[in-house]
C-alpha cells in the first residue's frame, strides 16, 4: 500500500482508562493502516478495545500515545473545534445503537450533519429525502425514531452517516442489535453504498460472516497477544 493511498494510519497507539489501580490499558502500541477505498473489518472478543479503536480513528477520543493520521493529516495537533469540523466533513458514523435524535423525524435526523455544516435547510432536506429514498425509506421520512423498526432506524443512521458524502465510514457493530434478516439488509446496504460512493470503511463487528465479506480483517487480540491482519477467504 503506497503512502498516498492510505486513508487511515495509526502508529504506536496506546489508550488507557482510569487512574491508579483502577487503570485499564485497552490498547498498547497498536499499528494499523487502511487504504483508500478499502473495507476493513475489525474483529475481536468483547472488551478488547474495538470501539475504543474506532473512536480514536473517528476523533471522538484522544490517544495517550501514538499517531492518528487521516488522509495524510496528523490529527494530534487539532483542537476540539477543528476535530469537530473534520468529523463533519470527512467522517460518517454508524453506531450499534442507532443513536438517532428522538425529537427529530427521519428526514431531519438525516439532514442534521448538513444543518451543522451550515447548509440551507431546504437543501439539507432535499438531500436527506434523496438518501432516504436510496435506503428504501421514502415512505418513512416524517416518522420519528420510535415509530420505526430496528432495521429502519439503522437504515436512517446509515443515511445520516453518508449525507455529507464522507470519505471514511466508521461503523461500530452496525447490525449488533438487529435480527438476522435486518442485519443482512443493513450490511448489504453499507456494502453497496461503500462501492457506489467510493468510500473507505472501517467496520467493527462480532459477525464473522459479515467480516469475511470485507476486503480485509484486522483481529484485535487481548492484552499479551499480538493484534494484526488476518486473511479473507
Amino acid at each position: 500500500m503506497s503512502e498516498n493511498n492510505v486513508m487511515v494510519r495509526l502508529e504506536g497507539i496506546s489508550k488507557a482508562y482510569g487512574e491508579g489501580e483502577a487503570r485499564i490499558q485497552v490498547l498498547k502500541g497498536l499499528d494499523l493502516k487502511v487504504g483508500k477505498g478499502e473495507m476493513l473489518a475489525i474483529v475481536g472478543p468483547s472488551g478488547v478495545g474495538k470501539s475504543t479503536l474506532l473512536h480514536l480513528v473517528g476523533l471522538l477520543d484522544r490517544t495517550d500515545e501514538g499517531l492518528v493520521e487521516l488522509d495524510g493529516q496528523d490529527t494530534g495537533t487539532l483542537g476540539g473545534s477543528e476535530r469537530a469540523r473534520l468529523r463533519n466533513r470527512m467522517l460518517g458514523f454508524v453506531f450499534q445503537h442507532h443513536h438517532l435524535l428522538d425529537e427529530l423525524d427521519a428526514r431531519d435526523n438525516v439532514a442534521l450533519p448538513m444543518r451543522i455544516a451550515g447548509k440551507p435547510a431546504s437543501e439539507a432536506r432535499r438531500t436527506a429525502e434523496a438518501l432516504l429514498d436510496t435506503v428504501g425509506l421514502s415512505s418513512r421520512m416524517t416518522h420519528f425514531p420510535d415509530q420505526l423498526s430496528g432495521g429502519e432506524q439503522q437504515r436512517v443512521a446509515v443515511a445520516r452517516a453518508l449525507v455529507m458524502r464522507p470519505r471514511l465510514l466508521l461503523a461500530d457493530e452496525p447490525t449488533g442489535n438487529l435480527d438476522r434478516a435486518a442485519s443482512e439488509g443493513v450490511f448489504r446496504l453499507i456494502r453497496d453504498l461503500h462501492a457506489e460512493e467510493n468510500l473507505t470503511s472501517v467496520i467493527v463487528t462480532h459477525n464473522e460472516t459479515m467480516a469475511e465479506q470485507c476486503d480485509r480483517i484486522f483481529r484485535l487480540a487481548p492484552a499479551g497477544e499480538r493484534s494484526g491482519y488476518v486473511g479473507v477467504s
Binding site: 476540539g80 473534520l86 468529523r87 463533519n88 458514523f93 453506531f95 443513536h99 435524535l101 442534521l112 451543522i116
Partner: peptide, 9 residues
C-alpha cells in the same frame, strides 16, 4: 452523537 456529527464545543 451531535459532537460526532461535527457540532463544535
Amino acid at each position: 452523537v451531535l459532537t460526532s456529527l461535527g457540532l463544535e464545543p
